[in-house]
Amino acid sequence: MFRRIGLGTVLLMTTLTAFAAGPFGGNPPKRSPVSGQDGQLSAADIKKLASVRRATAKYFDVQAATDAGYVAGGPCVPQMGTHYVNMAKIANPSIVPEDPEILLYDGDGHLVGVEYLVLYDGPVPVDTWDGHGSCTTPSSLVGPPPGLPGLTTAPLLFGSNFDGPMLDHGELAPLGVCHFDFHVWVWRANPLGVTAHQNPLVSCAAELD
């Protein structure tokens, strides 16, 4: 079976593995505290949030997440948690609220939220949303990694646009790989809003209940 895997497939899987380790290895820029406030949510948004909670309740146990193909994408990030990433879902640029690309767990292993991520595949160079660089890559890596589709503009979900395009926050940052992402705190209250980029109530330390 392994002899049937071509060079292109090997390169793609290598890129996927590297990308999975990258976006979650450090502190991404903060989103504006006024963005994603609960008061901006429509009745339809609130109903959809309830459906996201129902769909992700099965992932309370981290083992259930790993059984479903989610893999820890790096160390715990303060005010975000540990990102469990499903690369098969990231490879599909469609945004399905009940089927997030990333699950977020606090330092005690509690599910606190979900994250949606889609790669940026627009014109380059372009300034990143945080002003920390531009989505300029070597000619062989313009746009998303080979074989992965992306979007040219930020998607809209729950009344707010995704954050981005932003540079990868980890080892691949020098390559200029960019993406859009969007956090939704469906399992942990957030004083900044249910769709704020960070949540000050999420700790990487084991919590005392």
Rank of each mutant, 00 (worst) to 15 (best):
F2M: 13
R3C: 13
R4Y: 09
I5Q: 06
I5L: 11
T9F: 14
T9G: 14
T14C: 13
T15Q: 13
T15D: 13
T15H: 14
L16K: 09
T17E: 15
T17H: 15
A18Q: 12
P23E: 10
F24H: 01
N27R: 07
K30G: 06
K30E: 07
R31I: 09
S32V: 09
V34M: 12
S35C: 02
S35D: 05
G36Q: 07
G36M: 05
G36Y: 07
Q37H: 06
D38R: 06
L41C: 12
S42F: 14
A43I: 08
A43K: 12
D45G: 07
I46M: 14
S51P: 15
T56K: 08
A57D: 14
K58N: 12
Y59G: 03
F60I: 04
Q63N: 15
Q63D: 13
G69T: 04
G69P: 00
G69Y: 10
Y70H: 10
A72Y: 02
C76E: 02
V77T: 06
Q79D: 11
Q79Y: 13
T82I: 10
Y84N: 07
M87F: 12
K89N: 05
K89V: 02
A91E: 10
N92R: 02
S94L: 09
S94F: 08
I95R: 00
P100G: 01
P100A: 00
E101T: 05
L103I: 05
L103R: 04
L103K: 05
Y105D: 03
D106V: 08
G107D: 13
G107Q: 10
D108H: 06
D108Y: 07
H110M: 06
H110N: 10
H110Y: 06
G113L: 10
E115Q: 09
L117M: 15
Y120A: 11
D121G: 14
D121L: 15
P123R: 14
P123Q: 15
P125I: 09
V126D: 02
D127L: 13
D127T: 12
T128S: 13
G131C: 12
S134I: 01
T136Y: 12
T136C: 05
T137L: 00
P138E: 10
S140Y: 04
L141K: 01
G143V: 08
P145S: 05
G147F: 02
L148H: 00
P149M: 01
T152F: 00
T152H: 00
T153H: 10
A154M: 04
A154S: 04
L156T: 04
L156A: 06
L157G: 15
S160V: 00
N161S: 08
G164Q: 10
P165H: 08
M166A: 08
L167H: 08
G170F: 01
E171N: 08
L172K: 01
A173S: 09
A173M: 03
L175R: 01
L175V: 09
L175Y: 03
V177Q: 06
C178I: 15
C178L: 14
H179K: 05
D181H: 10
W185V: 11
W187T: 11
R188L: 04
R188N: 04
P191K: 08
L192D: 03
L192N: 03
G193A: 04
V194M: 01
T195M: 08
A196E: 03
H197D: 11
Q198K: 08
N199M: 08
L201C: 12
V202N: 03
V202P: 13
C204A: 01
E207C: 07
L208V: 14
D209W: 09
